[in-house]
Design a protein around this nucleic acid. Structure first.
Length: 859
RNA sequence: GCCCGCUUGAUGGAAUGGUAGACAUAACGGACUUAAAAUCCGUAGCUGCGUGAGCGGCGUGCCGGUUCGAGUCCGGCAGCGGGCACCA
């Protein structure tokens, strides 16, 4: 009994056992129902972080529980291996991205294996290997054939010093994050996938995703941003061409006081050629960056073009045309009419440039003359005013009417517009999948013939020059045109890395197939039954994958439309932070606690403060390395902690105390089984009993099985842990008793209790589970043992504690036979002295009985 | 700016509109120990009255509403966090 549970040895032992037996290999021909559990695959940054530990623990619990419940479980893992960090590392450390990435993968694979995750490693995929990306090159060419790909110019953040395109997050205060150079907006010719063709379908499909979180569906709905409105062409004075605008508020046309166009609108660019001041304004708008946030929060600025637009409803009335920084070229037609009274941005703009503000919608019940617009636009429903024939109509009717007028006069038409834009997939980067096309001076853009795939990334590249290494590789891009045989050049852009992650889930179904996606196997395994990952992917990755799956279906790769039937989005892992007087972040080891409890920065002796708990990040110096935790406490402890306190969708606070508590519990469970080992009846002995103490334990066991099963189904892992702790506390309580000895079933009841307990903890703490399973005398693996079943006969209670309320306030409780009926409940409550006293001989006005729960006496 | 989420003891959290605080963590008291660690047992929302067993009041960010009954539903407000198309 002096022994202790040896975490390190035990965990290694069972990991080796699972591996040597191929426990988690899944057979494509298995006839049991399939269940596909998938966690978002990681970018191989080199080390796993706590976010991974949380994500993969959640997935593993689901996978192991489903396995025990009799499903054929597909639970794979792989690497999202293309991406910018590899190139940054190459520049910083002079290592090749391929080498860096492959070493990182090897290191992370070892770390993941040390967590004891139930992956079928034979299905591992690595997206940066030609064996993977060759298939997506083929897909791209198929998309091209099917009209899902096109090329157009689009705006990017350009770093003139590095000769490279920057992500929005790499633009800090208008400057490149690394070079510090002023970032420009530039037009580049790029490849786009027609996700907008599927806008309506992607929107409709959301309704079928009933196992997705509502908020994710809502985010996607908003992202797609369907709106109904009017496309309308304004005639311009002194110009032959018209100006097409889009509006969702055709009803407010009489209140229009200006027309605004985007800085990149063709008309703006044309005017800029002959007007230096205007050109400067356009350039300034272009420096704002491309992010919606920066555009929308910037001060509303405009530049008058001097052009006037003719009001389509009021003869002789004209509206000035401005170039405005808040008009997005990518939305609608890049032009709008402003009705300041009923749109806040338009109002801000109008006030700044002294434009008229004419209200055309009055709040219900307000007279037209009383409507005054101050600094706040009126954007709600109301009654039309100041609008000629529209006066008195509702907003909705006015919209219809105006659209009808414009359609009959051939000036415009009703349009459904989406905020969703096509997916730009070109990246001017090296470490990505080459886009398989060739640019020929005489034939134009020529797809690489399928038999010449893959276009592999050359590995002999250098990062000493700014820009994309593929462009200055001496030979790679020079090829002969597949059509005419003349000199031509390869496309040097590579795919957005969302490309790889948009189909990897289908690749796992047939990871070694030459076809990339084997249609039959994809149909067998898809859709993913349960997908688990960070909420940060709520829109882009998940929307792109939904689109991609539809595109693959169109091209005959598979037959599903929705890739992820169930989705669980987990919260972040947070940890406390420290700051010094200057507000700089400190590592915990840079801080000392003085006897009076105050904190000082060790190096300087100056005060430090304990900041709030923040998402773990290098910059905040609050990262805890999971490898250190797994080494010191073991994988089961780390896994238990991840599941214990917070529900998965919420942020989780990492605390040292919490991990200690989890560690203690792991050992406590081990001692619990060791302690009772000698008393146990042989495997398979019936635990039938009439001994009250024993029966009480049996009821608790079966109730816990029931509750934990439900909790896991609903992903209430923290509650499942709490139930398990309650049960183990209860079993522990039997140590000093003679419960069950009266009819000789003690050993059988204890065995039943411990076996149930061990099987319930199996998915959460698999190593400890296996160890205890073998201590209980089993020669088989717990991983192969079925899930425990609750006996319904032991779930029912004979009596219940019912709360008695007076006017909704709790006054006491009464124990009643279960389901004893309205009358019995009422009379029991009315007999209580405190109720009698309160009623003072009077009849209660009303008695509300919620059977087995509550009796509320209303006096 | 727009969109989304969150707010319950010292802390993480539990609670089909029905006994708020399960289960843990930290704390305190005790047992064991030469001692410490580990382990075990116990206490505990706040507050008033009472020597005491106990009796009462208040309490889920704030204000209001619906209801016999609200942490939960509705309206408003505040605070905090996240996302916004080239980070993945």
């Amino acid at each position: 009994m002096d022994e202790r549970y040896n975490v390190r040895e035990t965990e290694a032992k069972w990991q080796a056992a699972w591996e040597s037996k191929g426990t988690f290999r899944v057979d494509d021909r298995d006839s049991r129902p399939k269940y596909y559990v998938l966690e978002m695959f990681p970018y191989p940054s080199g080390r796993i972080h706590m976010g991974h530990v949380r994500n993969y623990t959640l997935g593993d619990v689901v996978a192991r529980a489903r396995r025990a419940q009799g499903y054929s479980v597909l639970h794979p893992m792989g690497w999202d291996a293309f991406g910018l960090p590899a190139e940054n590392a190459a520049i910083q450390n002079n290592t090749h991205p391929a080498k860096w990435t492959r070493e990182n993968i090897a290191a992370m694979r070892t770390q993941l294996k040390s967590m004891g995750l139930s992956y079928d490693w034979s299905r591992e995929v690595t997206t940066c290997e030609p064996d993977y990306y060759r298939h997506e090159q083929k897909m791209f060419l198929d998309f091209l054939k099917n009209g899902l790909v096109y090329r157009k110019e689009s705006w990017v953040n350009w770093d003139p010093e590095e000769n490279t395109v920057l992500a929005n997050e790499q633009v800090i205060d208008g400057r490149g994050w690394r070079s510090g150079a002023l970032v420009e907006r530039r037009l580049l010719s790029q490849w786009f996938l027609k996700i907008t063709d599927y806008a309506e379908d992607l929107l409709k499909g959301l309704e079928t995703l009933d196992r997705w979180p509502d908020r994710v569906r809502l985010m996607q709905e908003n992202w797609i941003g369907r709106s109904e409105g009017l496309r309308l062409t304004f005639a311009l004075e002194d110009r032959p061409d018209g100006l097409e605008i889009y509006t969702t508020r055709p009803d407010t046309l009489y209140g229009a006081s200006f027309v605004a166009i985007a800085a990149n609108h063709p008309l703006s660019l044309e005017l800029a050629k002959t007007n230096p001041a205007l050109a400067e304004f356009v350039a300034e708008c272009n420096r704002m960056g491309t992010s919606e946030a920066s555009i929308e929060t910037a001060e509303k600025l405009g530049f008058s073009t001097g052009i006037s637009a003719k009001h389509p409803l009021v003869d002789g009335h004209t509206l000035p045309v401005y170039i405005a920084n808040f008009v997005l070229m990518d939305y609608g037609s890049g032009a709008l009419f402003g009705c300041p009274a009923h749109d806040q941005r338009d109002l801000d703009f109008a006030r700044k440039y002294n434009l008229p503000v004419l209200p055309v919608v009055a709040p219900k019940g307000t007279a037209a003359a009383d409507v005054v617009i101050g600094d706040v636009a009126f954007t709600e429903d109301g009654v039309m005013i100041n609008s000629g024939e529209l006066d008195g109509l509702s907003v909705a009717d006015a919209k219809k009417t105006v659209i009808g007028w414009m359609e009959s006069r051939k000036l415009g038409e009703a349009t459904v517009n989406y905020r969703l834009r096509d997916w730009g997939v070109s990246r001017q980067r090296y470490w990505g999948c080459p886009i398989p096309v060739i640019h020929c001076p005489s034939c134009g853009v020529v797809p690489v013939p399928a038999d010449q795939l893959p276009v592999t990334l050359p590995e002999d590249v250098t990062f000493d020059k700014p820009g994309n290494p593929l462009s200055h590789h001496p030979t790679w891009k020079h090829v002969s045109c597949p059509t005419c045989g003349g000199k031509a050049e390869r496309e040097t852009d590579t795919f957005d890395t969302f490309f790889e992650s948009s189909w990897y889930f289908a690749r796992y179904a047939s990871p070694h197939s030459d076809k990339g996606i084997d249609r039959d196997l994809a149909n067998r395994w898809m859709a993913v039954d349960q997908y688990i990952g960070g909420i940060e992917h709520a829109v882009l990755h998940l929307l792109y994958s939904r689109f991609f799956t539809r595109a693959l279906k169109k091209c005959g790769y598979l037959d599903v439309e929705e890739p992820f039937a169930g989705l669980l989005t987990q919260g972040m892992v947070c940890h406390e932070t420290y700051k010094n007087e200057l507000g700089q972040w400190l590592f915990p080891e840079q801080v000392e606690k003085k006897p009076d409890g105050s904190l000082i920065e060790t190096a300087t002796g100056r005060p430090a403060v304990l900041g709030r708990s923040e998402k773990m990040s290098k910059s905040k110096k609050n990262v805890v390395d999971p490898a250190f935790i797994i080494d010191g406490y073991g994988a089961d402890t780390a896994r238990l902690f991840m599941l214990s306190d917070s529900p998965p969708e919420r942020d989780l606070d990492w605390t040292e105390a919490g991990i200690d508590g989890a560690y203690r519990y792991v050992h406590r469970l081990w001692r619990l089984v060791v302690q009772f080992q000698a008393e146990l009846a042989p495997i398979g002995t019936s635990a039938e009993t009439s001994d009250e103490t024993a029966l009480d334990l049996r009821r608790a066991v079966h109730k816990t099985v029931q509750q934990v099963t439900e909790d896991l189904d609903r992903f209430h892992f923290n509650k499942a842990v709490a139930r398990i702790r309650e049960l183990s506390n209860k079993i522990e309580g039997h140590a000093g008793t003679s419960g069950g000895t009266s009819d000789g079933v003690r050993g059988a009841v204890l065995r039943e209790a411990l076996e149930a307990l061990v099987r319930l903890i199996g998915p959460m703490m698999p190593h400890l589970g296996e160890e205890l399973w073998s201590l209980l005398g089993h020669a088989t693996l717990l991983a192969d043992a079925p899930w425990p079943k609750a006996d319904p006969a032991l779930l029912t209670e004979d009596s219940v504690t019912v709360a008695v309320q007076l006017n909704g306030k709790l006054k006491g409780t009464v124990i009643l036979p279960k389901d004893c009926g309205q009358e019995a409940s009422t009379s029991a409550a009315l007999q209580m002295p405190i109720i009698q006293q309160a009623l003072d001989g009077k009849e209660p006005r009303k008695v509300i009985v919620v059977m087995n729960r509550i009796v509320n006496v209303v006096a």
